[in-house]
């Protein structure tokens, strides 16, 4: 079976809500039914068939040929299968995702992987603010799964996350792991101000010492423990990094002592 492919006809004139175009929602639907699905967000009745040329039949393997910063909520709540976007996406890609693979070959807007539970999101370009974070009013953010941003991520990546792994391969903005409850954030490259601000538990793992570390983190010295080698190996086996991140004797800071103080920031080079 060929992948169910949505080929973008023209740059959309309004923001699109693509939360309906997931493997779960499209299973068993005919191309005609899919073409009639509403994807517009304005008062005009914009349907999937107006925006995309729809080909292929395998709804468990969805391809968006061509993307746009106006593609919001791609892969929302998907639980299985895969979605590949050959282009950019807008806000909240993979929000509350519970399984499967979401691959974005361009940039992602704000809140990619917001409150995701499981599955894997790969973003080849940059990502906006709040990767894996909660929506306003939500108690916690990401609670499982893996997000890989191969570009740079915006501020507040991994805000209030509880579990799971976020890997940011070209650095990130300020306040990574803000109010983190637990989980792991990996970042290589430049990390913005005050990573781990108000984190309770969890691990922030960097290659370099952050330029501005909150004074409520305390220096635990260089540690000689087995965990970094195990985790470095995982990162390489998953294809996230091609060389070890932490090495045998990383530096460790404990915090945030403004709150519970059971979190850690570890980095390879001081």
């Amino acid at each position: 079976m060929t992948p169910l492919t949505f080929t973008l006809r023209n740059e959309p004139e309004e923001r699109l809500d693509l939360s309906g175009l997931t493997p779960d929602r499209l299973a068993g639907m005919t191309p005609a039914e899919i073409a009639k699905l509403r994807v517009g967000t304005s008062r005009r009745p914009v349907a999937a068939g107006d925006i995309f040329k729809i080909t292929g039949t395998d709804a468990s393997n969805i391809v968006f040929s061509g993307g746009s910063g106006r593609f919001d909520r791609v892969g929302t709540e998907m639980t299985a299968g895969r979605i590949r976007v050959a282009g950019d996406v807008g806000a909240r890609a993979g929000r509350r995702m519970a399984g499967g693979l979401l691959k974005i070959e361009g940039k992602a807007g704000v809140q990619a992987g917001s409150s995701m539970k499981n599955g894997r999101i790969e973003i080849d370009g940059d990502a906006g603010e709040g990767v894996g974070g909660p929506m306003a009013g939500e108690i916690h953010g990401m609670s499982g799964g893996l997000v890989i941003v191969r570009g740079k991520a915006g501020d507040r990546a991994g805000e209030r996350m509880r579990r799971g792994i976020i890997a940011l391969l070209k650095g990130c903005g300020d306040h990574a792991g803000l109010g983190m409850i637990a989980g792991t954030i990996v970042a290589t490259g430049r990390v913005g101000r005050y990573p781990g601000h108000l984190m309770k538990r969890g691990s922030l793992l960097f290659d370099l010492k952050p330029a501005e570390l909150s004074p409520t983190f305390v220096d635990c010295g260089r540690v000689e423990i087995a965990f970094p080698a195990l985790f470095d190996r995982y990162l390489m086996e998953e294809g996230i990094l091609d060389r070890p991140l932490l090495g045998p004797r990383p530096f460790r800071f404990g915090g945030d002592n403004a709150v519970l103080g059971k979190g850690e920031i570890m980095f390879a080079r001081g």
Binding site: R163, T184, R201, S203, F227, L230, F231, E237, K262
Partner: peptide, 12 residues
């Protein structure tokens, strides 16, 4: 410290 990754669960 509890760590879950790669389908496995570890304690530190």
């Amino acid at each position: 410290v509890s760590k879950k990754f790669g389908g496995k669960h570890y304690w530190r």
